[in-house]
Design a binder for these strands. Structure first.
Lengths: 109, 109
DNA sequence: TTTATACATCGCAATATTACGATAATAAAT
DNA sequence: ATTTATTATCGTAATATTGCGATGTATAAA
């Protein structure tokens, strides 16, 4: 026990849930907002901006990179991260599909 | 360690992340979809529909109730769950605010 | 070549989540 | 009053996540 039973759910359900999971941490939300607001690549200003250790930030960046929502390019001795617009839009669309479905009023509640 | 440092993030970041977290499990996504598709209250058809134990479903329902996205009404010896439209819309708006912001093209990537 | 800087990765401790059996609580049915 | 059905809650084992120090790697600077 303690192991999510992915096999009993649809691919769509698993995919949506794992997207939500990546965003389900305030540090990762903060990182995305920071990258967007800077409108530019950043390296580890994040370590100073947020109050987390370098190893921790690096780990969060990795998770964001895994779903492709951000991209890193090596620039000299630092790495420049930025939003991948295509992936961002795809995720946005997935969420909209989920959330913008009609929710009919139910009988009982 | 191993404890999320909520205090270093903004309320908005923490709120968004915790909303995402509730949806970050395929069972909870499945439960929401099922309730929506039935367009009606359900009780624990869910236990049969999904292949999870009654205790597990009940726990997931509790988490969904905690953020208010679903509501339960006692109906005889069963409980009827349905989407709370107002909360659904509020969460939808929060996500849209986050996702529908302009993502400018960055310099480096 | 040595040193410094910026990141990534490893390993670990603390904490959280997931799942479920057992049991309690409640209401309908007998 | 007893039994049955439906749900909630408790306790616990298995697993996952979070955070960080230590260490490795690669590039730039000296």
């Amino acid at each position: 026990m303690g192991l999510t039973k992915s096999e009993i759910f649809t691919d769509e359900q698993n995919r949506l849930a794992s997207l939500f999971k990546v965003l389900a941490h305030p540090a990762r939300v903060a990182i995305l907002q920071y990258i967007i607001n800077q409108k530019a690549c950043i390296c580890n200003d994040l370590v100073e901006e947020l109050g987390l250790a370098q190893a921790t930030i690096s780990q969060h960046l990795k998770e964001l990179k895994n779903i492709g929502i951000i991209q890193g390019t090596i620039e000299g001795k630092s790495v420049c991260y930025c939003i991948d617009e295509n992936v961002w839009k795809k995720i946005q669309t997935d969420f909209n599909t989920f959330f913008n479905q009609e929710v009919k009023v139910n009988k009982c509640c």
